[in-house]
Amino acid sequence: MSQAETAVAGAGRAPSPLWTFGILRSELTTTLRRWRTLALLGVLAAVPVLIGIAVRIETGDGSSPGPGGGGGGPAFLSQVTNNGLFLVFAALAVTLPVFLPMAVGVVAGDSVAGEANAGTLRYLLVAPAGRTRLLLTKYASVLVFCLVATLVVALSALAVGALLFPVGEVTTISGTRIGFGEGLLRAGLIAVVVAASLIGFAAVGLFVSTLTGSGIAAMAATVGLLITVQIVDGIPQLSAVHPYLFPHYWMSYADLLRDPVHWDEVVKNLGLQGLYAAVFGSAAWARFTAKDITA
């Protein structure tokens, strides 16, 4: 028996890179093929369509968007009529505070707890992958979902923006002009930065997911935590803790649209996300590898 165990463990270790890709792939297909996930992505894709049509109708008679032409409403909205590319930035500005992290929270919260809930976690652990590697795979697939979700918003916005509004040279928010190609490049970079902004929150969700055996409880706790932190981030009296809250620098992606790019806060944001990923990722590891799996 013990010989067999070591043999299996050895067999599991030997082809390790390919094997890891194998579970990552199966993990990804299960995650992305779920109806729940597809519905989430569908909602995310619908947001830019909604904004685009609303702005188009509002400005159809040549008036400026928003009441009184003021700077109200979400960021970048007033530039959308000049350049469809700005719909990408506007859509990300609208979805980043709530929709995107909520989708990520659902997927991350469900990642481990959902398996435990459905009674499939023990079968996953029977496979000789080891708990650490399983957890890493789970986290990797959540991160891939972050990127996919962001790209769905961005691409849907790009398509709608190009259909409904003129595209061409981009005026940066600093007032300088860059070509459409560079504008697209920056949009791509922004999508990646936005996806990376969710890394920390994904780690928090994963940690919460290892704490409970109920998928619903984990999702609710993760999303509840997100809302709580967002509220704390909005209270000016608590400004001392703001720089340490994971959503605090989320909107810093807009700094990539300045010319020259203002990196300070983008770097701070990425550093903070890395820190959250390290702390909560290792906490999830500590919990998951030491946990009694009963289901």
Partner: peptide, 27 residues
């Protein structure tokens, strides 16, 4: 330029031209 949250206000002087651009309201 004054860097705001997700917007910028720029005052540009070049020769005899003075431009101000507010990206938030696009004016």
């Amino acid at each position: 330029s004054i860097l705001d949250n997700a917007s910028e206000y720029s005052l540009i002087h070049n020769g005899d031209q003075v431009w101000a651009y507010d990206s938030k309201s696009d004016q």
